[in-house]
Amino acid sequence: MNEILSLKQLSFSYEDKSILENVNLSIKKGDFVAITGVNGAGKSTLLKLILGILSPKQGEIEILGEPMKQFNKWQKVGYLSQQVLKKHQQFPATCEEIVKANLFSQIGFLRFPTKKHKEKARAALEAVGMAGYEKKLIYQLSGGQQQRVMLAHVLVSEPELIILDEPTTGVDQEAITAFYELLKKLNQEKQMTIIMVTHEMQKSLEYVNRQIYLQEKQVLEA
C-alpha cells in the first residue's frame, strides 16, 4: 500500500461558514508533510477530518487504504496534539509511564503491562534521545525534552502514520531544530509517514519533503 491518505473533493463547513471546498490531497508512504497557513485557514479542521473527529459535508477520505467510515485500525495512527503537550506542565507521571500508556493495543483491555512492555517503552525513549530519563517526572523536563518524550509515546505503538498538531508551540528555537532533525531522521531511516501542522513555514521547509499551504479553502502545494 503506497497511498497512506487520500482526500477527494472534500468540503467542510461549520453551519454556514465554509472552511474547505473540493480539496484533493494524496499522501504517500514515506512522505513528511508540513501543513501551514494563517490562523483560521482550516489547518485544525483538516486534521480533525483526517482523525475522524469531524465528518465531511461532501467528499471522501481514505486512510491506510480504507474509507474513513469503515476504518477502525486507529492504533496504526499516532497523534500528538498541542493540548496534550500543554497539559503535561503539571501531570505527575514519569516518562516511562507516559510512553508505556500508548502500548494499550498490545497490552489489552483490563490487562497489566509486563516486562516486555517496559522494555519497549525504554527503547522508544532511547530512539528519541531520552535514554536515562525513564524515572524522571515529565513536568520537570524542558519543553523540548517533553516534546521528545511525547514523540516516544506516539512511536512506541509503531504507527504507520504520525499526525502532529503544532508540536513546537512554546519551545525555543534550538529545541525546534533538534525536534525537526529527529523527525527527519525517523522519516528517512524508518520510512515513517508524518503529517505535521505548523506555523513554522520557513523553518519546516528545510526538513519536510512536501509543504502544503491552506489558503482560501483550498490546499496549495509548495
Binding site: W74, S81, V84, A93, I98, A101, F104, H153, S157
Partner: peptide, 11 residues
C-alpha cells in the same frame, strides 16, 4: 492525560 490518544489507541 490524553483522552483522544487513548481513544485512537483502542481504549
Amino acid at each position: 492525560f490524553n483522552e483522544k490518544g487513548a481513544e485512537l489507541a483502542g481504549v
